[in-house]
Design a protein around this nucleic acid. Structure first.
Length: 790
RNA sequence: GCCGAAGUGGCGGAACUGGCAGACGCGCCGGACUCAAAAUCCGGUGCCCCUCGGGGCGUGUGGGUUCGAUCCCCACCUUCGGCACCA
């Protein structure tokens, strides 16, 4: 018996798999009947901004276990890999490392590919795609043109989030606590013309279709909160002076009789009209609109009276119109009816400026001071008042969302060029499809300087209008990297396609993704954008499905001292760990630490214990290999343990979706085997341990499988437990007196209740605790427990 | 403020549907082998008491439901996550 040498056997089997094309999967041939036995397994693709860290190791090892598990159950498994190679993460890495983004990105990609091979992950490399390759981004541009053509992309000047450090606009989804998701700089509000995806047009569907997908509740809740649907009413307040109606959105139409004043956001276009040359009002509006977001959120409410009045559509009273900074232009209509008696903010403001407060809902939840609606429960009054106002043409039921359109243009170099030109004659003109791909040109200095780097390449910028042939300028902004990742999973299905982003039949065959795995930090960004893209493509007839990710799992964070791991901590580098302990040990270790969806604190303690376990397995399997074949009918405790192990591992992975306890189950089996090396089932037990551990430790298991005289474990059928051997002949009956365990006895399985009770009464220990007291009640759980209550 | 998750030995965690709390592993203690060490193997290991038979306590805290609660209900504490002047 050789000693266990991970480096040697890992290299050996990685070569064998590569030579055999073991993990390559073909697309269905045209006309091939779909037997339904295919599985699309995908983990979120890495940013090539460095090398992989332990968080990636967890993510991809998880996916790998499932890939092997499904493959060995006879499924055709698509498990591709690629790189999110455009965008801020890769570009910032390039700037940090002082090279051209293309070179840095591609050298990082090569490092990562190497790491992935070292880990032995079963990836179909023939399908690799990268966002920065023209063969990919040509189709990103093609999709842009389709969205544009369908009115789902528009360009508009709007207040946007500006990251002063990364020198670019950010989507709302990537501002976290007022800070940039990548660099942590405090984001500023700026008014800029930007490109937007009209994701709000799909707000309802994005919300409703959550019910159709198998996702963690937590993630659904994040998306639900982010979309922020609220049902209410849009009510009209008339300003007689100017002969206009101003709409407000409210979720509390029932309180309208208490609306004693009216407030506009400082940014509202109506302010100028209402101020009518009132300098005080205009100055206030200008100053408070210009206040930094942070300061504005400090909650010191300020405001100014416009001198105008609006008519409360319920009471007919003239109520004063104010401009105040606590009303946001972005939400609702940028104007509110203020009900100080029943809204904390309105009350605070009313108290500051001595405005009237009228209570309209009593302690008992019934309306007061509300004319014919007095006495109605406030929930009912919402609808009643809305329809009453509706009949009088003063309002209607309405729905509001907190979701904003997705701003996706970036003032950065390393991204997909936007295929439009600006023509003096024709305005914004999309490029014809024949001009794609619009290649990303070189620039002298790609570092961000507040102006898009592409704008410095004059030769590239100056072009002609495809419509009129006159002079035109190109768009210097590039696309957000999240545009690339909103459809990459579709390209994997048909990566070579030169005529279309993918062929519909092939995408429909593989999609939707059966199991997606990635970090929960993408809950409201990538995972929402991708859903939007797929819905749109479905509306265009490009695909048959409306959701991209049927089932979703989030791996936990691998933390170092409570912090998210950075990519440079030595000693936790996957490469170093693989070098020292072997990939199989690293793979087992990261999954054995605990439930894969929980955060774990990184500690190398115990990783050598994993190596110890593999060596122990190595030894007992070699010993067992010298034993004769185990006949199938052999029925020893060890044989039963092996069948139980098959059942447990299979159930844990397949039904329970837990990945730590299967390792414990195999350890138990190996422990029993090492205690009973001469058991007639020894060889079977060894085969079982190796077979079910293979998804975790594919190299050493493949090696041991050949020691046991078999070949190609990676395509061997998954073992099936013999039900007959799972049935226990004897069980340990738990005996309780008054709910406390007093004794345990071995009894044959399947005894009747009467017999079980008799066994309980026969126990000395039970008798001692019953101590002659009359039995009040006896509870029997068949094959488990008897509880005598006295 | 609104919505939600988690809390189990010295440590990571297990206990799946209300039925043996602590599987498996780490660490620690004791032993075997060894000149010695490493490696390996064997035994022990929730806490407290004990006459060594056993007894009591124990899953963040306090209540409740139940024959029986880590699991269900109520309140609270702590930690974490999402939304937030959202009308």
């Amino acid at each position: 018996m050789d000693t266990y040498n991970p480096k040697q056997i890992e290299e050996k089997w990685q070569r064998v798999w590569a030579d055999a094309g073991a993990f390559h999967v073909e697309n269905p041939r045209p006309g091939e009947a779909d037997d339904g036995r295919h599985f699309y397994m995908l983990e979120m693709l890495p940013y090539p901004s460095g090398s992989l860290h332990m968080g990636h190791v967890l993510n991809y090892t998880l996916g790998d276990v499932l890939t092997h598990f499904k493959r060995r159950h006879g499924w055709r498994v698509l498990r591709p890999m690629g790189f999110d190679s455009f965008g801020l993460p890769a570009e910032n890495a390039a700037i940090r490392d002082g090279g051209h983004p293309l070179e840095i990105t591609e050298s990082n990609m090569e490092k990562i590919r190497h790491q992935m091979r070292l880990m032995g992950w079963a990836i179909d490399w023939a399908r690799e795609v990268s966002a920065h390759e023209p063969t990919f981004y040509r189709w990103t541009q093609w999709l842009f043109l389709k969205f544009f053509e369908h009115g789902l992309i528009y360009r508009k000047e709007a207040p946007v989030n500006w990251c002063p450090n990364d020198q670019t606009v950010l989507a709302n989804e990537h501002v976290v606590d007022g800070k940039c998701w990548r660099c942590g700089a405090v984001v500023e509000a700026r008014n800029m013309a930007q490109w937007f995806f009209k994701i709000t047009a799909y707000a309802d569907e994005l919300l409703d279709d959550l019910a159709t997908i198998d996702w963690p509740d937590r993630t659904k809740r994040i998306q639900t909160n982010w979309i922020g649907r609220s049902e209410g009413a849009e009510l009209l307040f008339r300003v007689d002076d100017l002969d206009i109606d101003i709409p407000v959105f409210t979720t509390r139409a029932d309180t309208i009789f208490g609306a004693t004043f009216f407030v506009l956001a400082p940014e509202s276009p109506l302010v100028e009209q209402l101020a009518g040359g009132n300098e005080e009002v205009m100055t206030y509006a200008r100053l408070s609109a210009a206040r930094p977001t942070e300061e504005r959120e400090s909650r010191e409410k300020t405001g100014v009276f416009t001198g105008r009045h609006a008519t409360n559509p319920a009471t007919g009273e003239q109520i004063p119109i104010w401009v105040a900074d606590y009303v946001l232009m972005e939400y609702g209509t940028g104007a509110i009816m203020a009900v100080p008696a029943h809204d904390e903010r309105d009350r605070e403001f009313a108290e500051m400026y001595a405005l009237p407060i009228v209570e309209v809902v009593g302690e008992d939840g019934r309306l007061v001071n509300s004319a014919q609606f007095d006495g109605l429960q406030w929930e009912e009054a919402k609808g009643a008042i809305t329809s009453w106002l509706g009949e009088r043409g003063r309002g209607a039921a309405a729905i509001n969302y907190r979701l904003r359109d997705w701003s996706f243009s970036r003032q950065r170099y390393w991204g997909c060029p936007i295929p439009v030109v600006y023509c003096e004659q024709d305005g914004i003109v999309p490029l014809p499809e024949s001009e794609l791909p619009l290649l990303l040109p070189d620039v002298e200095d790609y570092r961000p300087k507040g102006k898009p780097p592409l704008a410095t390449n004059e030769a590239w910028m100056q072009t002609t209008c495809p419509r009129c042939g006159g002079p035109a300028t190109r768009e210097a902004d590039t696309m957000d990297t999240f545009v690339d990742s909103s459809w990459y999973f579709l390209r994997y299905t048909d990566p070579e396609n030169a005529d279309a982003p993918f062929a519909r039949a092939i995408a429909d065959y593989w999609m939707p993704i059966d199991q997606y795995i990635g970090g929960i930090d993408h809950a409201k960004g990538h995972l929402l954008y991708s859903r939007f893209f797929v819905k749109v493509m479905n509306d265009w007839g490009m695909v048959a499905f409306r959701e991209p990710f049927q089932r979703l799992f989030h791996q936990g964070w691998v933390l170092l001292d409570g912090q998210k791991m950075s990519k440079s901590q030595s000693g936790v580098q996957p490469n170093e760990l693989v070098e020292q302990f072997g990939a199989d040990a690293v793979r087992i270790y990261i999954l054995f630490q605990g439930p894969a969806d929980q955060d774990m604190n990184w500690t190398p303690d115990g990783i050598d214990a994993t190596v110890r376990f593999i060596r122990r397995l190595w030894r007992v399997v070699h010993e067992a290999a010298a034993r004769p074949e185990s006949p199938a009918e052999v029925d020893t405790p060890l044989a039963r343990k092996a069948h139980e192990t098959i059942a447990r591992v299979t159930d844990d992975i397949d039904r329970r979706f837990v990945f730590n306890t299967p390792i414990a189950a195999v350890m138990e089996l190996v422990n029993e085997l090492s205690k009973a090396p001469d058991d007639p089932a020894a060889r079977f037990a060894a085969e079982t341990a190796v077979s079910v551990l293979q998804p975790y430790a594919p190299h050493v298991c493949e090696e041991l499988w050949s020691v046991l005289g078999h070949a190609h474990l990676w395509e061997a059928p998954w073992p099936v437990a013999d039900e007959a051997k799972l049935v226990r002949e004897t069980i340990e009956l738990v005996l309780q007196v008054n709910g406390k365990v007093r004794d345990r006895v071995q009894v044959p399985a399947g005894l009747s209740e009467q017999e079980l009770v008799a066994r309980a009464r026969a126990s000395d220990k039970v008798q001692a605790h019953v101590n002659g007291s009359p039995e009040r009640r006896v509870i029997v759980v068949p094959d488990k427990l008897v509880n005598i209550v006295v």
